[in-house]
Amino acid sequence: MSNVAENSKRRHKYVGLQKRKAISGYLFIMPFIIGFLAFMVKPFVQSLWMSFNEVEVGSGNFTLIFTGLDNYKFAFRVDPEYTRMLVEQFTRLVVYSLGIMVFSFFVALILNQKFAGRALVRAIFFLPVIMASGVILGLESDNQLMASMQAMVEETTTNVSITDTIQTVLRTAGIGVRAFEWVFELIDNIYDVAIASGIQIIIFLSGLQTIPSSMYEAADIEGCTAWESLWKITFPMVSNIFLVNWFYTIIDFSMRTDNEVIEKIQEVMILQLKYGQASAMAWIYFGLVLAFVGITSLIISRGVYYYD
């Protein structure tokens, strides 16, 4: 605490009540500072350091032998699965995050209208946040019986798959289907998209509700169509929400439990006891996701419009 006092003395900024408030502010966030220093900084630095080392666990302690970039080389060049998993997982992350954003924005637009049973529908869309979390998600994707039941229901309810039909149409029309491959995959896996967008829908919805209705009325009187006011009013007004949701979506999706890369890391760590290599793999993945979040957020934040 003396540090704070010194600091404020030097800057002549925090005196009297302000100084007292600054001290109590620090007292309030003290649990976080202690926790962060004790349980985040040390493991964080250590894990980074470990990724350049060979870790040998003995009884009572562990020793590190510096090996340079060997763990990273191992992850990329020796391990047969890691590179493939990384590329697959990263592509999935990009495609699904885009899909989740579009889907949740669309659903939020619908739920923003007034109709009977709105609260019920909203509750159902939020349900996966609770049901499909943690271990349940991983089990769900492994369960073949459930998958076959779902397929059976699909078969009995529709005799033609829309995506199949469109694919055939596009193919006969001579348009390359490959470009749309990911779009089709998204549509086929709309369930995965839907269960990952519970929170985003609510956040979008809260953003939509803060837009004053007078704006739409004014636009309506000026002869704006609903489509135009979507792009000229709704979009700019919720653009900062886009940033928040994009952030949340990527973080949430990259930490999902049915993630191949994370499963691989845990396997290497817990079963094979290769801590150094597991750290290197985790850091490659984390670095990639972080770079992606950083670059895309920068691009999005340029388009964000601040009303006030």
């Binding site: 800057r11 502010g25 966030i29 976080f32 493991p43 973080i251 994370i262 985790a282 850091w283 984390f286």
Partner: peptide, 28 residues
């Protein structure tokens, strides 16, 4: 409250949101 280094500590909160626990799992 306003206190020195507030932005820095809040940045740390953001870092904590960003870092997947799996990354530091080994050393934890």
């Amino acid at each position: 409250f306003n206190f020195p280094l507030k932005k820095f500590w809040f940045g740390c909160v953001m870092v904590m949101i960003l870092v997947p626990p799996q990354t530091i799992a080994t050393s934890l």
